[in-house]
Design a protein around this nucleic acid. Structure first.
Length: 258
DNA sequence: CCAGACGTTGTT
DNA sequence: GTCTGG
DNA sequence: CCAGACGTTGTT
DNA sequence: GTCTGG
């Protein structure tokens, strides 16, 4: 799945790639974006132009009485999203792209053949040279009751939130984890973002899109566990505690991610 | 009919 | 153990 | 995803 | 709002 990710691209690189026309946001490099935090997403505005806006991670359905439900709506399964009450409306008309340069997965604790226990181990996943790419996302607007200023929010009023779509992990990533975020290539962005695209087509992008090529993964320090540790150390290759050598960093490309 | 949930992940 | 918050 | 809390009353 | 369960 995807419960933590990074976005380290400067605004001009993002603007060039995603071709949004909205005013620049003050986007600092993020190494450890966690659920309930604000992060930039790309969507279409009313005129059909792309815009970059900061929303809160964790989709809160419009009908929710409890805003806190968002903390548990950080991912939506591609296989079932079309039919889920919590996501259905957003899937119909409020799709977005979630820019990222990488994400993290935790390989669960396991017992090796030698009987040694490997503790839970975080991994970073991304592309060499860290180009920004896009997760498939949904966004929603919530306006029940006044919400106090929530870190980075804009005081009271509607709160906009988003979620990240997931799919089965591809063969390589499955070594770490069996689910992964849906990555949409640039050719799919217009279709995904247009509100009027038929469900048949958007579902096809999620379920039958190309498997991402060239992703690499490597173990990192458990510093990433704590959301407050939002710095480049989260991406530094680390020795996997108690694991075998095959899991250690192997590609020189990985170092360029730093 | 009304009440109550509405989600994913992993793990056993 | 389970829920909430980041 | 992980980290951290998990409760009420009254009193200051 | 919409679906599931009683």
């Amino acid at each position: 799945m995807c419960g933590r990710y990074s976005l380290t691209s400067p605004d001009d690189a993002m603007r060039q790639l995603f071709a949004y026309e909205s005013p620049p946001l003050n986007i600092a490099a993020r190494y450890n974006t966690a659920p309930t935090q604000q992060a930039p997403v790309v969507r279409q505005d009313e005129t059909g132009a792309r815009e970059l806006v900061k929303l809160r991670w964790g989709l809160v359905p419009s009908w929710a009485d409890d805003f806190g439900i968002g903390a548990r709506m950080i991912n939506a399964r591609s296989e079932t999203v079309a039919g889920k009450p919590a996501f259905r409306a957003a899937f119909q008309r409020r799709r977005c792209l979630v820019p990222a340069t990488g994400w993290y997965e935790w390989k669960s604790a396991s017992e090796g053949k030698d009987g040694k226990i490997s503790p839970k181990q975080p991994y970073a996943i991304g592309y060499p040279e860290t180009p920004p790419f896009a997760f498939a996302g949904l966004w929603e607007s919530w306006d029940k009751g006044a919400v106090e200023t929530t870190g980075g929010g804009e005081g009271t009023g509607p709160v906009e939130t988003y979620t990240i779509l997931t799919r089965a992990a591809d063969e390589d990533i499955a070594k770490v984890h069996h689910r992964m975020p849906v990555i949409l290539d640039a050719a799919a962005w217009d279709t995904w973002l247009a509100p009027d695209t038929l469900t048949e087509k958007t579902a096809d992008l999620l379920l039958n899109g190309p498997t991402p090529e060239g992703l690499i993964h490597w173990p990192v320090s458990t510093r990433v566990n704590k959301p407050a540790n939002d710095d480049p150390s989260c991406l530094e290759p680390a020795d996997p505690a108690g694991a075998d050598a095959a899991e250690a960093p192997s590609s020189p490309d990985q170092l360029r991610l730093l």
